[in-house]
Amino acid sequence: MSRKPYQRELPKTTWFLRHARYKKYMLHEISAFAVAVYLLILIIGLFRLGQGEEAWAGWLSFVTSPFGLILHLIIFGLSLVHTTAWFKAVPQAMRVQRGEQFVPGPTIVGAHYVVWAAVSVFVLILAGVA
């Protein structure tokens, strides 16, 4: 008897709308762009600083404008999504075996949060904020 297998195609652009877990994945992938955009804003800031006082003041007024502040909030939110998503995934990629046991996932994730907090405090001290 001849065979006639039927191939169902996955829609190339809308596949991620099919399940909540794919939407979540897309969100934390897209959040990487927010981190990239913020890096760009900071690099532009450095560049403007090099151009002199007036240019720097212009950049500063942009980032402290209402639009700049809303942008900060959005980027901060997406950065949190990005960071927490990847921290959560660390125990899968990094298994630490001690004898016949593995270091529990929450310990590894917790250590990442501790280091994150420590680095943040260090940066704030450097910036003269804390």
């Binding site: 877990r21 990094m94 298994r95």
Partner: peptide, 20 residues
């Protein structure tokens, strides 16, 4: 994406294996 590990009925965690 990690979906493989979420649906695995034997908790194999293929996504983790691949990252390792």
């Amino acid at each position: 994406v990690g979906a493989c590990s979420e649906v695995c009925p034997k908790s194999v965690d293929p996504a983790g294996a691949i990252q390792q």
